[in-house]
Amino acid sequence: MKKLTFAMENYLEAIYELSKDGAGVRLSDIAERLGVTKASTNRAMATLSEKGLIINEKYKEIFLTPAGLSLAEFTSKKHQVIHDFFIEILNIDPATADKDACAIEHVISSDSIYAMEKFLHLNKKFQAD
């Protein structure tokens, strides 16, 4: 599959975060979460559906497919690792860390994420000793 745009990854991540309890997500909730119109959210859902990442039946809740869930989980994990690294290692305030993590998560390599995650783990282990 061709790489998703930043916006499409944000939509997937929003669906993932809003559906953590296993329930489906309403289009209006996604639009509100991302601060965008229902019309643009509807177009994005059509694109994600065409790519096989969501199940989106008209006037029904939206669900992630297994492929969509996997991609959304990885995007969310990247966000969390960057966020935690910025706060715990660089002492950046949480609001800035969240904003920057949201921007960086789309362009950072998996290798960099794994290195940051390893560093965080080692730092926590070192602090515990």
Rank of each mutant, 00 (worst) to 15 (best):
Q127N: 10
N123H: 15
R26V: 03
K60G: 04
I82M: 05
A103H: 11
E57N: 12
K58S: 12
E50G: 10
T65S: 12
E32L: 08
F126E: 14
L71E: 15
V81S: 01
M8D: 13
K20V: 01
R33M: 10
G24F: 02
D100H: 07
H121N: 11
H106Q: 05
K3L: 11
A7K: 14
K78Y: 14
S19V: 00
L27K: 09
K51N: 13
H121I: 10
R26Q: 09
T96Y: 06
L4F: 01
V107F: 14
I89S: 03
I54L: 09
G22P: 00
E9H: 07
T5P: 00
E105M: 15
G22L: 06
A101E: 00
K118L: 09
K118D: 12
D129W: 08
N42F: 13
V36Y: 03
Q127S: 13
G68P: 03
N42C: 09
L4C: 04
F86Q: 05
M45D: 01
T75H: 09
Q80R: 13
V36F: 03
A103Q: 11
N56W: 06
K78T: 06
S109F: 10
A14L: 00
S112D: 14
Y16R: 05
N10Y: 08
A128P: 02
D129S: 12
K38P: 05
A7I: 04
E9L: 10
K99N: 07
G22W: 07
L64R: 02
K60P: 03
F6V: 08
A115I: 07
K3E: 15
S76L: 02
N56M: 05
H79G: 00
H83D: 05
M8Q: 15
D100C: 07
D111V: 08
F119I: 03
Y114M: 09
K99W: 07
D100V: 10
H121W: 10
A23T: 13
A95L: 10
F86H: 05
E57F: 12
N10T: 07
S76M: 04
A67Y: 11
I87N: 04
L90S: 08
K20R: 12
R43P: 06
V107M: 14
M116H: 03
F86S: 04
S112F: 09
E61G: 08
F74H: 15
T41P: 04
L4P: 02
V81M: 00
L4W: 01
H79W: 07
R43S: 13
E32F: 06
F63M: 08
L90G: 06
L27N: 06
K124C: 04
E13K: 15
S110D: 15
P66E: 13
F63A: 05
S19Y: 04
G22C: 04
F126I: 09
T75G: 11
K3W: 08
G22Y: 07
I89P: 01
M45A: 11
K58N: 12
A72L: 06
N123Q: 11
I92W: 07
L122K: 11
F63E: 07
N10C: 06
